[in-house]
Structures are given as structure tokens and as C-alpha cells.
Simulated scan of single mutants.
Amino acid sequence: MKKVLGFIGCGNMGAAMVGGIIASGIVTNDNIIASTKTKQSAEALERKFGIKTTQDNKKIASEADIIFLAVKPFMYDAVIEEIRDIISTDTIVVTIAAGVELEKVKSTFKRDVKLIKTMPNTPALVGEAMSAICPSSNISEEELDYVINIFNSFGKTEILDEKDFHGFIALCGSSPAYVFMFIEAMADAAVKMGIQRKKAYKLAAQSVLGSAKMVLDTEKHPGELKDMVCSPRGTTIEAVIELENGGMRSSIIKAMEKCEEKSKNM
């Protein structure tokens, strides 16, 4: 029997998740219900996915086997207070807010609740998320596998200790911005060299995509793959040396450390 999935909040990330779930066939659209703030948002979701919608969070709490809290972190207290007396002891609550600790969520519920902390990144919008998952101790292996399969429907997953979520934010949560900047810089250089901007973005983005796929598919060390491109006295090694002179590696490391530090202090 397929479970009923409930989304409290269904913005860009929630909608990306819903799309992946439906496409994978893990759960059909008639077994997904989402609550939204406005009737307009609800109607848009119904048109796009054919799912059930409501503006009543309590309806989600009473009907769903797995509830995704897809609202902003500052809204967690109010939402949990609204649903905590309605959900059953078997309901799994999945948080999608890295800055909200499991212990804090549990204390807000004021009782033992099955919790799974997650964080997908924005490439979920194109079915290529990297998601971190951390279950509470009362989640069974079967329950965890089910939730992992849901997240795998719109990307890839990795189980992490909760303490590592700050590092995950720096590595995956924020890194799409770093990559977009890299693609933009590559395209700017290509435009300077005479390539049309629209073509430059496409060429740069596909090169980044293909390079990432090589790392995943070959499982070779990135340094080894880099060496494969660098011929003696060739063009690539000249570019690599210039990037090293500019402190590319140290800049990325420092930026990620700043990101992690900010996450810890929020």
C-alpha cells in the first residue's frame, strides 16, 4: 500500500520534490496533498500536478503518513504548534531546513515524534538535487529507505550526522551559486574571445555538467581527471597554472569556511 505524502508549504522546492516523486511512480498524484497559503497557489499546483490541495495544515496532519515541513525555518514553531496534537505516533515528519535542529523540533512537538532531517539543494528543480538526510533514532530502516527513495526521485542522497549539515550547506546547499559564478565567468571570457553570449553560456554549462558526470561515473580522483586534460606544454596546463596563481583553490576553501561559520551562527 502506497503512503499518503503531505506537504506543508509547496513553493519551488516542494514543487520540485512533488514533480520528481510523481515522475518516479513512488506515489501517485492522488496520494499527495499539499497545503498552501493562497487559493491561487493551490489551483496552480492542482493544474500542474493533479494533486490534492488545502489551505488547512491540520488536514495534512490528519491524512498524511509522511509530512514534509517545506516552510521557512521561522514558521516551524507556529506550524508544529498547529499540527502536533493531530499527527499519529506512526507519522513521519520530514524537515527541510538545515538550521533547525532535530532536538529543537522534537521539543516543539512536546512528545516523541518520528523525525527525519533533510536538506536538498536547488538543482532539485531539474531533478539533480544533492540531499543530506539524518534520521532520528526511532526511525526504522524500512522507513528511512522509503524516504531515501523519495529523495532519490529528484537527485541523489547521502546520510550524514546532524553535526555535518553545516559543512553540507557550504559544500552543496550554497555551491550552486559558486558554480553559477564559474559558468558566468567562463562565458564572459568566451564573449571577450568573440563567442556569442547565449552560445557561451550553453558551452560553459555543458562543459561543467559533463565534467561533473565524469567524476561521478568514473569514480576517479578529480586530480587524475584534471591531469588527463593537461598535456605537456599544452594550453590547459597554462590555464591551470594561472588559476593556481590566482588562488582558486584557497579562495573556494575560504569561501566555504565562511559559509559554514555563518550557518553555525544563524
Rank of each mutant, 00 (worst) to 15 (best):
A23L: 08
I159S: 12
S131N: 03
G6K: 07
I252K: 01
G14V: 02
T53P: 04
Y76W: 04
I51L: 10
F151K: 08
F74Q: 11
N29D: 11
V27M: 14
V240T: 13
F182H: 00
I67E: 07
M228K: 10
F180H: 02
N57G: 08
F151Y: 14
A70V: 11
D112V: 13
A61G: 08
Y146D: 07
E143S: 12
M266S: 11
T38H: 09
D65A: 00
F68P: 10
V229I: 15
I133A: 14
T53Q: 12
E260L: 03
V105F: 01
M193R: 14
S136M: 13
T122P: 12
I96R: 06
G246Y: 06
S35F: 10
G194H: 05
N12L: 08
I22S: 14
I21R: 09
E43R: 04
A205E: 00
T108E: 04
E261V: 01
V240R: 04
A189K: 09
T218N: 14
A190P: 12
C134N: 06
T236S: 11
I139F: 13
A239N: 07
I67P: 13
N245L: 11
A190F: 06
K48R: 02
I92Y: 07
T118D: 07
A64Y: 01
L209Q: 14
G210Y: 14
P232L: 03
M17K: 01
N138C: 03
A124H: 02
I22R: 10
L243H: 05
I116N: 04
G9H: 07
I195Y: 05
N138G: 00
D161L: 08
P73E: 07
K220E: 15
S41M: 07
L243S: 03
E238L: 10
M75R: 04
G99S: 11
L45P: 12
A15C: 00
P222M: 13
E219Y: 05
A200Q: 05
S107G: 04
S137N: 15
A200W: 02
A204R: 05
A187M: 01
E244L: 07
N29I: 04
L171S: 12
E244M: 13
I8M: 15
I32T: 05
L225A: 15
D30T: 10
F74H: 05
L69P: 05
I150G: 08
L160N: 08
R47I: 03
K2T: 12
E101M: 09
A187G: 15
E158K: 09
L216N: 11
A129N: 00
G19Q: 06
V179P: 03
E257C: 01
A97D: 02
A212Y: 09
I80V: 06
A239G: 14
I139W: 08
D188P: 14
F151W: 12
A15K: 09
E219I: 03
G210C: 15
K220C: 08
N57H: 09
Q196K: 02
P123C: 02
S140V: 13
R84V: 02
S41D: 03
E46K: 08
Y178P: 15
P232Q: 07
E242N: 09
I66Y: 11
V4H: 07
N152Y: 04
D112M: 08
A177K: 02
S153Q: 09
G19F: 01
Y76M: 15
M181S: 06
P120K: 03
